[in-house]
C-alpha cells in the first residue's frame, strides 16, 4: 500500500532515474558498439548507429598472442592475491569476531589506518625493494602487493560478517555430540562460506582494476590488462575499434562480478560503516 502511494506520487522520478542511468552507461555501451565496427566506421562522422557488425577486432586481439598473456597475468594476479589474502585474513577475522578481546578494537582500527597510507608515498621504497629482489616485471611482486593492500579491507569485511553469526550454534552442536570435524564441515563452513565468497569477489574486483602498481612495476612479461590497455594511449594510427574490443574483454568479467556483489561491496568499501 505504501508503495502504491509512492508510485503515484512521483511518476517523474522513474523517468529521471532511467535517463541518468542510460547516460551513465552510455560510454560503456558506445565502446561496446565501437568494438563491432571496422576501424574506419569507428571514427566516421556522423557517428554510425547502424552498421554491419564485424568480429574482426576480436579476432585481431586474440590472434595477437600477447593479449592472452596479459589476460592470463590479470587472472593469475587476481586469483593468486585473492587466495593469499583469504588464507591470511580468514583466521584473523575469525579470531577477532569469535574471541574478541579488549585490544580487538584497536587492532581493527590500526589495520584500517594501514590502508590509508597513500601508495605514492611509498612508491620509491617499494620500487627499490622490488628491484633489488629481482622481482620487477614479475607476477609475484604484484600478487604480494595486492595481497597486502587488500588485506585490511578483507579483514574488516570478514569481521563484520563473522561478528553477526550465531556463535552459540558451535557450542550447541558440540554438546549434541558432534565431533570437531562434523562441527567444522556441517556447522561452521556453511555459515562462513557466503561471507568468504563475497570478500573474495571484492578482492578479485580490486586486484583486477588495480592500476598504480601495475603500471609502475611491470613492463612486458607480467603486465596485466590495466597496463595493456594503457599502452593504447600512445597513438600510432587508428585502432580505436581494436582498443574497444580489448577493453570490452577486459571489463566484461568484472562488470558482471560487480553487478552480483553490489550489497557486499558497500560494507566492504566503507569498512562496515554502511551496510
Amino acid at each position: 500500500m505504501s508503495h502504491s502511494v509512492a508510485k503515484q506520487r512521483h511518476p517523474v522520478a522513474g523517468i529521471i532515474a532511467w535517463v541518468v542511468a542510460l547516460v551513465m552507461f552510455f560510454p560503456i555501451a558506445w565502446m561496446a558498439l565501437a568494438s563491432f565496427k571496422t576501424e574506419v566506421e569507428a571514427v566516421q562522422t556522423p557517428p554510425l548507429l547502424f552498421f554491419m557488425p564485424t568480429l574482426e577486432n576480436y579476432r585481431a586481439i586474440f590472434s595477437e598472442a600477447n593479449y592472452l598473456l596479459f589476460a592470463g597475468n590479470s587472472v593469475g594476479i587476481a586469483v593468486g592475491a585473492t587466495l593469499l589474502t583469504l588464507i591470511i585474513s580468514v583466521p584473523a577475522a575469525f579470531a577477532m569476531a569469535f574471541y574478541p578481546s579488549p585490544r580487538t578494537r584497536g587492532l581493527l582500527l590500526w589495520m584500517l589506518s594501514t590502508k590509508m597510507l597513500p601508495a605514492v608515498g611509498v612508491l620509491v621504497p617499494i620500487y627499490l625493494l622490488v628491484r633489488d629482489a629481482g622481482l620487477l616485471d614479475s607476477r609475484t611482486a604484484l600478487i604480494v602487493i595486492n595481497t597486502l593492500s587488500n588485506m585490511p579491507i578483507a579483514i574488516w569485511m570478514l569481521f563484520t560478517f563473522f561478528r553477526d553469526l550465531p556463535k552459540d550454534i558451535i557450542e550447541a552442536s558440540r554438546i549434541d555430540g558432534a565431533n570437531l570435524r562434523q562441527v567444522l564441515v556441517h556447522v561452521l563452513l556453511p555459515l562462513v562460506m557466503p561471507g568468504i565468497a563475497s570478500t573474495g569477489l571484492l578482492c578479485i574486483i580490486l586486484c583486477w582494476n588495480e592500476a598504480f602498481w601495475s603500471l609502475n612495476l611491470t613492463a612486458h612479461n607480467a603486465a596485466p590488462l590495466t597496463a595493456f590497455i594503457a599502452s593504447f594511449s600512445a597513438p600510432q594510427g587508428l585502432f580505436w575499434a581494436k582498443l574497444s574490443a580489448a577493453s570490452v574483454l577486459a571489463i566484461a568479467p568484472i562488470l558482471i562480478f560487480g553487478w552480483f556483489s553490489q550489497k557486499q561491496l558497500v560494507s566492504g568499501l566503507t569498512f562496515g560503516a554502511v551496510k
Binding site: A17, V20, A21, M24, F25, P27, I28, W30, M31, I205, W208, N209, A211, L215, L225, T226, A227, I229, A230, F232, S233, L243, S244, S247, A250, I251, I254, L255, F257, G258, W259, Q262
Partner: peptide, 15 residues
Amino acid sequence: MISPFFVMPTVSALV
C-alpha cells in the same frame, strides 16, 4: 547506474 565504478581506470580514461 553503478556500472562505471567497475570499469578499470585505464579503460574509462581511454574511452
